[in-house]
Design a protein around this nucleic acid. Structure first.
Length: 724
DNA sequence: CTGGGTAACATTTTT
DNA sequence: TGTTACCCAG
């Protein structure tokens, strides 16, 4: 038996060796599903059942794809191998693989192989313009809402001619139904696709060109799918079509971890696998290698409350471990205070901060933790905020590159024509649009045309003349300069960099840093096209600061990760389960929320603490709330109530008055702290020209130790800061 | 056309 | 609470 098989448990080995025919691997949390997937790929190739180019492996995230590629490389070519060793494997996200296919067959759906993948921002602008064209009040039908409806149709594989008839009079679906065909037409005219189109176009091609489908279906002797529970209808159909020839489809997933229903994922896909693929084999991976048995018992007890599930029972040889702790607190401030202290205590016991995570249901909950950790000087990172390629300055630069490489890219042109400010306003833009529409040309061509006819004159004409000339120059250098050099030149000559250099706001420095980082990143790409492909498909988070830091993130963002110590905060009715989900989706929504809770619990290896607050500040007003029903659903014997019971803070907790007294005392302590010469004191919020807002942690003479919101903890001379 | 001011609005979750 | 969108004056 090869080494790679000996390293597996019997069920895992079965999943790797059952190569022929449809196979569903129900893989519970922490049961080694990535290991099974990568070993299976390795085995298919090693045993000569397939060449690397005949194996198709699909994941949901770029991260998962990269991880698998690396592990397969190691398995096949040894630890020293670079991930590229497995280059001929078709391994990637649904979207990246579809993009790769679509570039080969773009003409079949009226695109050229150089089509651009639009980002969310571009889509919004496009839809907003279409709403305006159709005289639809965008306050009544928000762009975002229309976009979501269209997106959900695409998720279900519905082209404009297939969308369901909408009842009622002038409703959102009707408005969206009106916009959808126009939106698709615009995308085609602009030679663009959005995310959903990547899948949708391939479905259309597979259906209308059986020869193309057959080419791929024959090619991929083996297909593997990760996180099958998250597939939407379009992805499901795409897979079924591709697997129809060889029928060697291996789907790995966990119905209990399906948490993307709101985004079109159909748990049903995994639930009906055995019907869809007659003769399918199902293997359950139930041995958990991650958590203590107390944590597993809590998770299992909770998820057993769900009706619609295939059912599995996780087990472990690990000891009981510490019980799952429940802490009741008065409000979100106390919650943050408590968790902050607990983290310090874990830290004293030798647990690294990066092994600790605070998981929340919604983004707004992170604030109180950030503030608290800042004052306690606990290093932290919020995972999942703005992504690098979503930052304004990065997008602007990319837009410049897009216009250089594809002058007819109207969306990009419109974005930067007046950035930095050049005096090109609404009126001029309108003139360009009218001309472009009447001559059926791009905005860029319209400028050239109007300049040649002399219709654009004066200051505006001169400005645009200069801009067009600059773009022509830059375009001429495409071959001579590297991408990074070109971007550098362009940022300089366009005045874009100067714009931020002149900006005195605290973000400006960070933005300039990002521009530098972008130029550095450009060095990795040989052509604009390849860079744009990367930008379109890789929505990687900003260059993650490395280091020993506590992780604060949403439950969704935590899927697939694990930590020694996990804090699950805000377990209150209305927050978690989310009232909105309950209202919109009823029981199905509740079950999805429960799965989210299950995902949260199973992130923890050794210590799990759940907190709930009796009062929470939402927007501006206080709202009282009762503990989440999920707390009651966890078997009591695995729990330890830190305050005598989940309702302690409501019945026996300190009174509002007592809290008031405490908080008054606290403020007094802070104001009494020693003041520095210029009236600065410990705990005071200050502003620094470069680093922005922060809180003073310590004062040593003229030197202040300040925790900045974005820049971390720094030592600063008192004279450089001012009270915020 | 620009920029400052104000009012309204908003919080899930994301490839 | 923070952000965005719109309005109006310069």
């Amino acid at each position: 038996m090869p080494d790679y098989l000996a390293a597996l448990n019997p069920e895992q080995r079965d999943a790797v060796l059952s190569t022929e025919g449809p196979l569903l691997v129900l893989s519970g949390a922490g049961t080694g599903k990535t290991k099974v997937l990568t070993t299976r790929i390795g085995h298919l190739i090693h045993s000569k059942r397939a060449f690397p180019g005949q194996v198709l492996s699909v994941t949901f995230t770029n991260k998962a794809a990269a991880e698998m590629r690396m592990r397969v490389s190691h398995l096949l070519f040894g630890e020293a191998a670079a991930p590229q060793e497995a280059a001929s494997l078709w391994l990637g996200t649904f979207h990246s693989i579809c993009a790769k296919m679509l570039r080969r067959h773009a003409e079949l759906v009226g695109l050229t192989p150089q089509f651009t993948i639009l980002d969310d921002d571009d889509q919004q602008r496009l839809i907003k313009a279409l709403l305006a064209d159709n005289n639809i009040d965008h306050t009544k039908f928000p762009t975002r809402a229309v976009q979501n409806v269209i997106q959900s149709w695409k998720d279900r594989g519905l082209t404009p001619d297939k969308i369901p008839e909408a009842a009622g009079n002038y409703t959102l679906p009707q408005v969206a139904a009106k916009i959808y065909p126009a939106y698709q037409a615009r995308l085609k005219a602009l030679n663009c696709t959005d995310f959903g189109d990547l899948l949708l176009h391939m479905l259309v091609i597979f259906q209308s060109h059986p020869d193309v489908l057959r080419q791929y279906a024959e090619r991929f002797k083996y297909i593997l799918v990760d996180e099958y529970q998250d597939t939407n209808v379009a992805q499901y159909l795409w897979l079924r079509l591709l697997a129809a020839y060889h029928k060697n489809l291996c789907c790995v997933g966990d119905d209990d971890q399906s948490i993307y229903g709101w985004r079109g994922a159909e748990v049903g896909n995994i639930l009906k696998f055995e019907q869809d693929y007659p003769g399918a084999k199902t293997i359950r991976l139930e041995r958990n290698y991650r958590s203590t048995s107390a944590i597993l018992a809590a998770a299992s007890g909770l998820i057993a409350n769900n009706e619609t599930r295939l059912g599995k029972t996780l087990w472990t040889e690990a000891s009981d471990g510490a019980p799952v702790r429940i802490k009741s607190v008065w409000d979100d401030n106390e919650e943050a205070r408590f968790i902050g202290e607990e983290i310090e205590s874990f830290q004293r016991n030798g647990i690294a901060l990066k092994e600790i995570a605070v998981l929340v249901r919604a983004g707004f909950q992170t604030r109180s933790f950030e503030e608290r950790f800042l004052t306690l000087a606990i290093p932290y990172k919020v995972v999942g905020g703005l992504r690098f390629y979503e930052r304004m300055e990065v997008r602007d630069t990319i837009a410049y590159l897009r216009v250089v490489s594809q002058p007819h890219d109207d969306l990009a042109f419109e974005r930067i024509v007046n950035t930095p400010k050049r005096g090109i306003g609404k009126a001029t833009l309108e003139q360009l649009h009218i001309s472009a529409r009447s001559r059926n040309s791009s905005l860029y061509a319209a400028v050239e045309h109007l300049l040649s006819t002399g219709e654009l004159k004066g200051k505006t004409g001169a400005t645009l003349q200069k801009l067009i000339a600059q773009f022509d120059t830059w375009r001429g250098k495409l071959g001579d300069l590297s991408l990074a050099e070109l971007a550098d030149l362009l940022l300089e000559e366009s005045g874009y960099r100067a714009m931020w250099q002149a900006d005195s706001s605290p973000e400006a420095a960070g933005r300039l840093d990002n521009l530098r980082e972008l130029i550095r990143a450009l060095g990795d790409f040989p052509s604009v096209a390849e860079f744009l492909e990367h930008v379109g498909l890789v929505t990687d988070s900003a260059t993650q600061e490395q280091g020993d830091m506590v992780n604060i993130m949403s439950l969704h963002a935590a899927k697939g990760l694990e930590f020694d110590c996990v804090f699950l905060a805000g377990w209150e009715e209305g927050i978690f389960p989310s009232q909105r989900t309950l209202d919109e989706l009823g029981t199905a929504g509740l079950e999805e929320e429960r799965r989210l809770a299950y995902v949260g619990i199973t992130r923890a290896r050794r210590h799990l603490t759940i907190t709930h607050a009796a009062n929470r500040r939402i927007y501006n007003q206080w709202q009282s709330s009762s503990p989440s029903r999920f707390i009651e659903e966890i078997p009591t014997e695995t729990l330890e109530f830190l305050d005598g019971g989940p309702y302690a803070s409501r019945s026996n907790g300190p009174s509002l008055f007592q809290r008031e007294v405490e908080s008054i005392l606290q403020t007094r302590v802070e104001t009494v702290a020693p003041a520095a010469s210029n009236g600065l004191s410990k705990g005071m919020r200050v502003f620094h020209q470069k680093f922005g807002n922060g809180v003073i942690l310590n004062i040593e003479g003229d030197h202040l130790q300040i925790a900045f919101k974005h820049a971390g903890v720094k030592k600063i001379l008192a004279e450089y800061v001012e009270p915020a």
